[in-house]
Structure formats: structure tokens, C-alpha cells
Write a protein that binds this DNA or RNA. Structure first.
Length: 233
DNA sequence: CCCGTAAGCTGACCAGGTCC
DNA sequence: GGACCTGGTCAGCTTACGGG
């Protein structure tokens, strides 16, 4: 995925609320939109090097969007609003996944039961629903999701389980938005309900997939580089 | 096309509880 | 009564979708 727009180096100063951060660009403090409602507390630390996207639109309340954070010598994408979904979409369209090759139609934002899923794949007599989750939290090369309790995430898993019980296919795809992970695990410490729902979903036959992305600020690209296991133990 | 709403689920604030 | 913790409420910004 190409990282669009004008990227500018900046320094993280402070998160004002879940949507707005204060950053320093060329020695000047500016407001930046935070496109990630997770906690990000190990990433958004005082003085962290970041990349912000500059916007020219005048009707925004913030001139910048905070999209990359430097951590342990690599760039981490914290754009959970768009990047994971777009990366997954491009990979699907490009036929990068063997298991999804034989679906002829890809639809986005598909409503089933009480939830809207990121993707619905269709072929005659076959349906596969995918929910994409962005992973930004990594400790000791283990990615954890979620970063903060997510009722909606749990509901998504419950609905995917139901879909599977109705004889259709379903899966969760974790997009790790940084290169330094070898596995993904549910974050029991932060959200036990989500973790349990994930285990129940897996038991019901919901596929668990995880893909690591290389984030390259110079090349302005973020691409899936390998698949890693999801360990629910 | 415009407007409302859902999605991302924190952080500030306030009320109420506990403890010394 | 003050210091501290917990739980509930709500505003904060942007994007994309769906309906009128």
C-alpha cells in the first residue's frame, strides 16, 4: 500500500484526547488527528519521533494526521482507521492469498446479522466473511490485540462464530502494522472477553490469520511481508 | 448531494465509595 | 476531611457509508 499525502517528520508532545495529539513540526506545536482510538501508551511517549501527514483541507480542525511512530528503530503505523483495511483489500484484489483465490467477488463493508464486516467474498454457493484488526502493540516480538477493551470486537467474533455455525466461512485477519513480530496473541490482560471470544470462534472453525507489514517511511509504503501464526493456547 | 450515523474506544471529569 | 480509587458519562476528530 502506498502511504499517500505529504509526510513530515515531527516530535510527539502529548495526547490531548483520543482523537487529538500535540506534535512539534519544525519547532512549532501543531494539532494532529490520531486515527487510532487504542491506548498506544508504549508508542506515544514523550518526545517520540513521528511522521505526520499534512492536510491542506481547510474544514479540518487539525492540520496534521499522526500516522507513523518510531519505536525500537522501526516505523510503526498507528493508522487503524484506514491502513489495515486498505492493505487487506489490495492483497485480496492482487490475489496474494491462495485460500481466497477462487472467490470471484469481493465486497467491502458487508452487513450480516447485527454487524458490518470488512469483507465479504463470494463465489457460487460460497461465502466468506473477513474482519480485519490492526495490531500496533508488540512486546518481545509478540503482537497483542486488542490494545484496549473492545466490546465491538468481541461482538464481531461472536457473529463470525454464528456465521460459521450457519455453514458459511469466516475469518479474522490481524494486520500487524510493524515488522517486529513473530506471532499474534489475544491480549488477555486488557480484554478477557475478546480473548475468550477469539478462542470460541477458533473452536467453531473461524480462521485466524495474521500478517506482518513492513513500514517504509522513505519509500512511502506499507506492505504485507509474511504470514505469522495466531497463538491462542 | 447533503446529512446523519457508525466506527475507531480514550481521557477528563464527576460522583460515590473506602481508608486513615 | 483529604487522599485515593472505581465506575459512569461524554466530548473530542475524521472518514466512509447509507438513506432521503
Amino acid at each position: 500500500m502506498r502511504i499517500e499525502g505529504e509526510l513530515v517528520k515531527a516530535k510527539f508532545v502529548k495526547r490531548l484526547n483520543r482523537f487529538v495529539a500535540l506534535v512539534e513540526v519544525d519547532g512549532v506545536q501543531e494539532f494532529a488527528h490520531v486515527p487510532n482510538t487504542g491506548r498506544l501508551k508504549e508508542l506515544l511517549v514523550d518526545g517520540a519521533a513521528v511522521m505526520v501527514r499534512k492536510y491542506d483541507k481547510t474544514d479540518r480542525k487539525t492540520r496534521f494526521g499522526l500516522i507513523l511512530v518510531r519505536k525500537n528503530g522501526i516505523w510503526v503505523s498507528i493508522d487503524s482507521a484506514n491502513a489495515p483495511n486498505r492493505i487487506m483489500y489490495e492483497a485480496l484484489v492482487q490475489g496474494k492469498f491462495d485460500k481466497f483465490r477462487d472467490y470471484s467477488e469481493i465486497r467491502r463493508e458487508v452487513t450480516v446479522l447485527n454487524s458490518r464486516f470488512d469483507f465479504g467474498l463470494f463465489s457460487e454457493g460460497k461465502e466468506y466473511y473477513i474482519e480485519v484488526k490492526g495490531v500496533t502493540l508488540v512486546e518481545n516480538r509478540q503482537g497483542f490485540f486488542p490494545d484496549a477493551p473492545t466490546q465491538r470486537g468481541t461482538r464481531h467474533l461472536e457473529e463470525l462464530t454464528k456465521i460459521r455455525q450457519n455453514g458459511k466461512e469466516a475469518g479474522v485477519a490481524f494486520i500487524v502494522q510493524r515488522e517486529d513480530a513473530d506471532v499474534v496473541r489475544p491480549n488477555d490482560r486488557t480484554d478477557k472477553n475478546f480473548a475468550n471470544a477469539l478462542r470460541i470462534a477458533a473452536e467453531a472453525g473461524v480462521d485466524l490469520m495474521a500478517y506482518v507489514c513492513k513500514v517504509d517511511a522513505e519509500q512511502r509504503r506499507m506492505d504485507i511481508v509474511r504470514e505469522i501464526p495466531v497463538i491462542i493456547k
